[in-house]
């Protein structure tokens, strides 16, 4: 199993570690509920070293052919989220893309798909792929009060700088981005530098947060997690994950065009449970409408911010009754879930 280079720093901060996609990462520090509220009301710092970080060099046209979104935009811009799709339109991976120049891009992949994406690019193009995952650490500082740690106006949203300076330290990449719905920055830096930033910020009151919090935060926004909500059998249309541009060609486009013309057999929906009900539907549990099976749950959690259970899943489009309370079967009992749309906050 891989271990974050920040393991020792995080252990000192009281991290509870757990396995995620083959990495031993901090799951929680104090309680995920406190960490979650720090992201929403204040500021928190995450270690995202498990995510794949790749540098791709070569002809942009070749990457354009493999990636679903257009890569036109100026250097220093982030293009994303977007995705690599298979020829059936299913997700090979959803990725964040950074345009360094017309012939150089950086990609962030899901941890579980890092090797798969490298192989996919290499076997379908002449692009040069360099894996930076093990030489650089990725951290994210997220929340309204991120401004107090750094003058964020230096980088407009969804842009980045290479060889930047953060708190007087040299970092490889600094971007105004995140996966939380809050203002924030993400940093790629050498392990020693990232460790210093992590320690300094937590000493100054920034709350360290783990992957459990990252999961509850992303569910409030309706962001999808690979392996839970999307995989190779699900398309961007079915998941309502608008990561493609039809104005260009790319692998998987034909399948997407076909679905946009003729419709889909399942569609992603969000739901909320009644306040006070502390039961979590799990991945794969059946969604029913007056006894008929109409869908299934893919993610769910208790949102400390909304003080209720929220989640998402897939439902037959004929039963996508936004605002209506359908039901889910949990351990032989039926519970109401109200269909709602994202973001929940």
């Amino acid at each position: 199993m891989f271990v974050s280079p920040l393991f020792e720093v995080e252990e000192k901060l009281g991290a509870n570690f757990g396995e995620f996609a083959g990495w031993n990462m901090p799951m929680t520090y104090s309680s995920y509920q406190e960490e979650h509220l720090a992201v929403r009301n204040s500021v928190a710092i995450f270690d995202l070293s498990h995510m794949g970080r790749l540098r791709v060099k070569g002809r942009a046209e070749e990457l354009e052919e493999l990636i679903a979104k257009e890569l036109n935009g100026s250097p220093g811009q982030m293009i994303g989220p977007t995705a690599f799709l298979n020829d059936k339109g299913g997700f090979i991976d959803d990725v964040m893309t950074y345009k360094v120049s017309d012939s150089e891009f950086l990609l962030v992949t899901n941890a579980v798909n890092r090797e798969k994406v490298i192989k996919w690019i290499r076997s379908n193009s002449s692009l040069d792929v360099e894996d930076l995952t093990f030489s650089l650490v990725m951290i994210a500082i997220q929340g309204k009060r991120v401004k107090e740690t750094f003058n964020v106006d230096e980088i407009p949203r969804m842009t980045f700088k290479l060889n930047a300076n953060y708190m007087g330290m040299d970092v490889f990449l600094l971007s105004r981005s995140g996966w939380t719905g809050e203002d924030g920055i993400e940093i790629w830096a050498e392990p020693e530098v990232a460790g210093k930033i992590f320690t300094k910020l937590t000493q100054s009151g920034v709350k360290p947060a783990g992957l459990v919090t990252r999961d509850s935060i992303r569910q409030e926004m309706g962001y999808l997690l690979y392996g839970e909500d999307i995989d190779e059998s699900v398309t961007p249309v079915e998941s309502r994950y608008w990561v493609f541009s039809l104005s260009k060609g790319f692998v998987g486009k034909d399948a997407i065009v076909e679905q946009l013309r003729n419709g889909v057999s399942k569609i992603r929906f969000g739901f909320k449970m009644k306040k006070g009900l502390r039961i979590i539907p799990r991945n794969g549990m059946e969604v029913t409408s007056l006894g008929s099976k109409v869908g299934y749950v893919t993610s769910s959690t208790f949102s400390p911010f909304l003080n209720r259970v929220i989640g998402m899943g897939y439902i037959s489009p004929q039963h996508f009754f936004l605002g209506y309370s359908t039901t889910v079967e949990i351990r032989g009992r039926t519970y109401e879930i109200k269909m709602d749309d994202f973001p929940f906050i």
């Binding site: 757990g18 799951m27 929680t28 995920y32 509920q33 459990v212 039961i279 959690t301 259970v309």
Partner: peptide
């Protein structure tokens, strides 16, 4: 409780 981590509900 440490293995389960954050407990959010009980029947």
């Amino acid at each position: 409780q440490k293995k389960l981590r954050d407990i959010v509900g009980i029947e």
